[in-house]
């Protein structure tokens, strides 16, 4: 009951927050464009009037790129530096925008203007940044101990067979994947709590996040798995559709851009649905707690 109810109300709240989702898409689009547009210029300049681009009609052609010589090295260094910059800037931007989204999906019929949305973003930015940093750090440490350390041990061992190595890595990967929804739950509950309680500190919000995640663990975990499953299905669709789609005309490339951006907006919608569903679940847990206290008082 709790799961379906939370998913349903979360879905409705997400629909109400469509303007906020479009603002998030636009901000991320601009951020990535800052990285990709110069890259596109570099590519077109490097290839010039060459017809080797015909070799790219069937996809990435390593030879065509390596033949660019020094230009290829420049493009690659720009690519890696740009990707790192985008990731770091994206981390800040995501913390900022997520604060607005959580504020927007807190309850029914919250239709906010862009100024209200950015107001909510700014109000909780610091706390959301801290929560994101700490949870990302915890995930990183978990990755280190669950995947990297076992991988290093089995690869250095002289007695572990190929199959055992493979099985060890599959088990380690599975454990990590099973742990990941828990960390997402903690992160989402923390942020939902912070959005609902402006006076709460980031650390107390994280504490509450753990508390909410484990106080109603079974429902919360199952709901998160369902939400992740929806995102995985979209991911599979994207992987089936986009890499193999190789338009050769300007019109085709524009259509590809439109479709890929629509898919990304859908991805943002699903992510917001996750935030909204967790917020709804939190509200139910809080309401349940209140009812219990009321009963005890009566």
């Amino acid at each position: 009951m709790k799961i379906s109810g939370s998913l349903r109300s979360g879905f409705m709240w997400t629909l109400n927050a469509k303007n906020s989702i479009l603002i998030v898409w636009f901000c991320i689009f601009i951020l990535v464009l800052v990285f990709v547009f110069p890259l596109r210029r570099s590519l077109t300049t490097a290839f010039g009037a060459s017809m080797i681009t015909g070799k790219l009609a069937d996809g990435i052609n390593i030879e065509a790129f390596t033949d660019l010589g020094p230009a290829f090295k420049s493009i690659m260094s720009f690519f890696t530096a740009g990707l790192m910059f985008t990731f770091l800037a994206g981390f800040l931007l995501n913390s900022f925008l997520t604060a607005g989204l959580f504020g927007n999906v807190r309850k029914d019929s919250v239709k906010c203007s862009s100024s209200e949305f950015f107001g909510m973003c700014a109000g909780n930015f610091g706390a959301f940044l801290l929560i994101s940093l700490l949870i990302t750090l915890i995930i990183g440490i978990a990755f280190l101990f669950i995947i990297v350390v076992p991988a290093a041990i089995v690869s250095l061992s002289e007695t572990v067979s190929d199959k055992s190595q493979f099985v060890t890595m599959v088990i380690a990967g599975s454990v990590f994947l099973l742990l990941l929804p828990v960390m997402l739950l903690v992160a989402d509950y923390s942020r939902a709590f912070k959005a609902a309680n402006e006076d709460a500190s980031a650390f107390s919000a994280i504490g509450k996040g753990f508390s909410f995640a484990f106080s109603n663990f079974r429902e919360s975990y199952m709901m998160m798995l369902l939400l992740i499953l929806a995102q995985v299905i979209l991911g599979v669709i994207v992987m089936l559709l986009l890499p193999g789609w190789r338009p050769v005309t300007g019109g085709g490339v524009f259509l590809l851009l439109i479709v890929s951006q629509l898919l990304f907006i859908l991805r943002l919608f699903l992510k917001t649905w996750r935030y909204a569903s967790v917020t709804s679940m939190m509200n139910e847990i809080e309401a349940g707690n209140t009812r219990t206290i009321d009963k005890m008082e009566l």
């Binding site: 990709v36 547009f37 890259l39 596109r40 590519l43 077109t44 290839f47 010039g48 009037a49 060459s50 017809m51 681009t53 015909g54 790219l56 009609a57 990435i60 986009l242 890499p243 190789r246 338009p247 050769v248 005309t249 300007g250 085709g252 490339v253 590809l256 851009l257 890929s260």
Partner: peptide, 13 residues
């Protein structure tokens, strides 16, 4: 020159 393949790659990136 056909820029479409390069624009496609940039879009995908």
């Amino acid at each position: 020159p056909s820029k479409a393949p390069l624009h496609r790659i940039a879009n995908k990136i």
